[in-house]
Amino acid sequence: MAGRSDYQIPEKPRPKPEIQVRPDEHMTIMTRNTSLIDLCEANDPLAWTEFLHRYGEMLVSFARQVGLSDREASDVAKATILAFGDALRDHNDIAEQSRVRIKQLLRDIARKRVLAVSRHDSSDGSSSARVWIGQAHIGNSVREEAMFDLEWQRACLRRAMDMVRAEVGDQTMSAFEQYVLRRQPVGEVAQDLNTTPTEVYVAKTRVLRRIQASLVVIQAEE
């Protein structure tokens, strides 16, 4: 159903890339992220699972930021991802251009979906879009793009955290979360985790250095 895609791209027939992945190769490929979109295009369930994990929350957050209700934001994220799936299936060249276009594509589709929801919501009074009428940013392209970029950056940070979480031990991550993210005093964290202040300090330094390294990898993919 080509008509379901929000994002229209001129037809440019190209041979579909041949992707053959053994089950045990998935994690390696996911970690390297050489071809998440290629794998989504090949309808790989794990690739789509990763896609939902990577972009679902940020799309929900974006829709909330521009003024939609919880339910509407969830629906917009769902509709955006399904429309992206349609666009990917209908236009093979998206996979080839994904490194530069995935963010732009998701942003354009999400903005259209937000607009559609806010227009549809006109009478029942349930939408926060109306409650927030003075503050909502729907239709303001500059604000919407800035908000999308912010949510995109936050998604990159969360992904970097996930990558680091998989590399360091639970104790290190807990120390980091308590001391750095929740600003608990170092002595309190050390006591809580039955460790020393030195280890808490080291956890902070190591996790931050790894997050920075992960962000370099993530940004290189964009």
């Binding site: 679902g56 929350e57 929900v60 957050s61 829709a63 909330r64 919880d70 339910r71 969830s74 769902k78």
Partner: peptide
């Protein structure tokens, strides 16, 4: 802040 909306999506 977005916990509820994300839970609905999840």
């Amino acid at each position: 802040d977005n916990e509820n909306a994300v839970a609905m999506f999840e």
